[in-house]
Design a protein around this nucleic acid. Structure first.
Length: 499
DNA sequence: ATGTCC
């Protein structure tokens, strides 16, 4: 059997692109990495694998702890991690969701082609840059107050509909229809709300961006047709999260868990895993606050969508409806969710693939830097896509393509209905700033790739240089080979507004 | 990711 040694641990290749960390005495369940050997090389020297092993030791872990092909080391849990814990006697972990709650991405379609925008990239980017607040700090598309914020936290995109920032079809083309009903605004601190009120409809910083892209390749004609995507079509990708509000919710609950459950923390292999026992008051409060932050992030992306539609209408002198700027889909990348899954009880604990006795379990499924990828026929896939599978949007780096996949038939048996979320970082932000200078990166993109980039700060461009990321082609290739998310189309950047 | 430490 092929093995791969990394981070002081040994992986065994149990089938093509599936590497297992065998269960040792400390682990409740085995752990698995979905990757090829090139991708494994990238996690050889960081803490990804030991972090994944730690996740497999957590109370109530069900079936394997998983790392997607774009995985890398994170805070407590690896980014690219998928982990399910029993919702009755397991746990929920802010570290398993991440600081940027419901960081995610949506794709807005247009009926324009690359020819329509060619030569007007600078004009379009300047107009978008003026219309969508970006970078660190306050300011948003909607001049928020606390009354609006409460409604946004409670109702998500449904609030945008009432305010004229959304149409009914936007809700129908969003994961969870843009609203988590379990949201509990009372569980969100005043400090978090203060930060959120001034950031309603803002891009933020880091890897967040607004990008105009063109469809360059169609791999699956039938599904592309169902998604309304065709070669040469212009689309808009909006990638952002819950800004300071989500960050504050995460920080608040990490502190509360430390204060209220020190004995529970003590038993975890790493304090950064910071889980709350299922059923405890803090677990319920965190779930309610996290769901409110999820709603906030959806409102954020919807408000930006509104601003993008108005900007396109201005620049191209036509209404956004005439430009057919409909939402393809909006997916969350950093969330935990109560979901019911079929699992199988085996001698070794649990499996997902039908070996053993079937039981239905209520779980907290954590997707941290991972995308839900439900297959055709699943009741939570919107009606428009029920026959083909949900759209899965995977952004690449600034200089690389992005992909639209469809939820694969293998995703429920392999990964709790999940796949990768992006290219995945190769190096830290600090290291990136040593290796690159923002101005040079932007010049290279313009001269070599004809991609026009405008950013709030030069150092952000350096931190996000294409060379800082893995090869997204390899990431989606593994997803497609495993049948957890299947290739539909590839896009390539035309111009980009960076936070 | 993030008013990159209240």
């Amino acid at each position: 059997m092929t093995t791969f040694d990394a981070d002081g641990l040994t992986l065994h290749e149990v089938e093509a692109n599936v590497w297992e960390l065998e269960r040792d005495d400390g682990m409740d369940v085995p752990a698995r990495v979905f990757a090829n050997e090139d991708l494994l090389e990238h996690i050889k020297d960081d803490r990804t694998l030991s972090q994944l092993r730690n996740v497999a030791c957590m109370p109530g872990a069900v079936a394997p702890a998983l790392c997607m092909p774009d995985g890398h080391q994170g805070y407590g849990f690896p980014v690219g991690g998928v982990a399910a814990f029993d919702a009755e006697d397991g746990c929920i972990s802010p570290g398993g969701v991440g600081f940027d709650i419901n960081c995610g991405v949506r794709m807005v379609k247009t009926n324009l082609t690359y020819e329509d925008v060619r030569g007007r990239e600078e004009e379009l980017v300047e107009a978008l840059f003026d219309a969508v607040p970006c970078g660190l700090g306050g300011g948003g598309v909607h001049d928020g107050n606390h009354t609006d914020l409460e409604k946004a936290l409670e109702r998500g995109v449904d609030w945008c509909l009432e305010e004229g920032y959304a149409v009914r079809e936007d809700l129908e083309h969003c994961e969870d229809e843009g609203m988590r009903p379990d949201a509990d605004p009372d569980a969100v601190s005043k400090k978090a709300k203060d930060r959120g009120a001034s950031q309603m409809g803002s891009l933020g910083s880091g890897n967040h961006f607004l990008e105009i892209q063109r469809v360059t390749d169609v791999y699956d004609d039938e599904t592309a047709d169902a998604f309304g995507l065709a070669e040469d079509q212009l689309v808009v990708l909006i990638h952002c999260g819950s800004r300071g509000l989500g960050h504050q919710v995460c920080s608040d609950y990490l502190r509360r868990i430390e204060q209220e459950h020190p004995e529970f923390l003590e038993e975890l292999p790493d304090k950064d895993l910071a889980a709350a026992p299922a059923g405890s008051e803090v677990a319920e409060d965190y779930y309610g606050a996290m769901c409110a932050a999820i709603n906030f992030a959806w409102v954020n992306r919807q408000l930006i969508t509104h601003a993008v539609r108005e900007t396109f209408a201005d620049v191209f002198d036509a209404s956004w409806q005439d430009l057919e700027m409909d939402l393809l889909y909006d997916v969350a990348h950093n969330i935990a969710k109560r979901e019911t899954h079929d699992v199988y009880v085996t001698e070794d604990g649990y499996s997902l693939d039908g070996d053993g006795g079937r039981v239905e379990r209520d779980l907290y499924v954590h997707r941290k830097g991972a995308t839900r990828a439900f297959p055709a026929g699943h009741p939570e896939v919107p009606k428009a896509y029920r026959d083909v599978g949900q759209p899965v949007i995977i952004p690449g780096s600034m200089g690389a393509g992005s992909y639209v996949l469809k939820g694969g038939d293998g995703s429920l048996d392999r990964s709790f209905g999940s796949t990768a979320h992006g290219a995945g970082r190769l190096m830290s932000r600090t290291q990136a700033k040593d290796e690159y200078w923002g101005g040079d990166v932007a010049d290279d993109l313009r001269e070599q790739n004809e991609i026009y980039v405008k950013a709030a700060s030069g150092s952000t461009i350096a931190e996000e240089a294409p060379g800082v990321y893995k090869d997204v082609d390899e990431v989606v290739g593994v997803s497609d080979d495993l049948g957890i998310g299947d290739l539909v189309v590839r896009t390539f950047p035309v111009c980009n507004v960076k936070g």
